[in-house]
Write a protein that binds this DNA or RNA. Structure first.
Lengths: 109, 109
DNA sequence: GCGCTGTGCAACTATCTGGTTGCCCAATCG
DNA sequence: CGATTGGGCAACCAGATAGTTGCACAGCGC
């Protein structure tokens, strides 16, 4: 059903800055400026990247006063992971098991 | 170690045509022209896509006379899958288990 | 209220990328 | 041999994209 979403997620993960942002967010919520502080790009660039990640369903935001807190969206990588599992299952034993996991827990198209 | 490779794979998977090519290749080896026949793009475009997939380590080619046969590279999605598992493990029970699978079978950085 | 900090919005630029067309080369088949 | 078929290479084009700067605006601290 959501081939677009899968593509959006993979495209989002294709950018090293965005992967770095996601890695940073694994440590907890953070603001745009806070995230930008640890990167060699401007705050605006980070803001755009977060928008892209949000559009891909990988992060969500929440206002807190004048700040905006971002956090990783639970399950956002589910569908892409399932796609990889299905395509790679035949050649990768581990992905084959992942495929079983996803098949068992419902979400199939 | 291979952050570049992870990025290359995700970027490659971000394109719907390339995902379609990989899905086609799950049915076995195929030639460029054969793959292009089922797509709305030219043979040259498919050739470029296959080169991109090859550069990402997802497919490999083999000459056979005047034809070139492409096939999926075993394990090509391993590292990106591990990355997704590590980042998403905290929010996705299934990815958490995948992370365990990859950790158990070695390749950790 | 005033200044500072955190964001948002818009315009602009340079580069990347997917796609094309055109031509050339190699191998196969009659 | 000659025609056909599968690919490679290069040039070119349009749209997407990552990045910037500049300015406006809303909360918070003093």
């Amino acid at each position: 059903m959501s081939d677009d979403r899968v593509g959006a997620v993979f495209s989002a993960l294709g950018d090293p800055t965005r992967r770095h942002l996601l890695e940073s967010l694994t440590h907890g919520r953070a603001t745009i400026s806070g995230l930008a502080a640890g990167l060699p790009v401007t705050r605006q660039a980070v803001s755009k990247h977060l928008a892209t990640l949000g559009h891909a369903g990988l992060v969500r935001s929440e206002r807190a006063g004048r700040e905006v807190l971002f956090e990783i969206t639970p399950g956002g990588m589910g569908e892409p992971a399932r796609w990889m599992a299905e395509v790679g299952a035949e050649w990768d034993e581990r992905l084959a098991r992942l495929s079983e996991l996803f098949a068992a827990e419902g979400g199939h198209e």
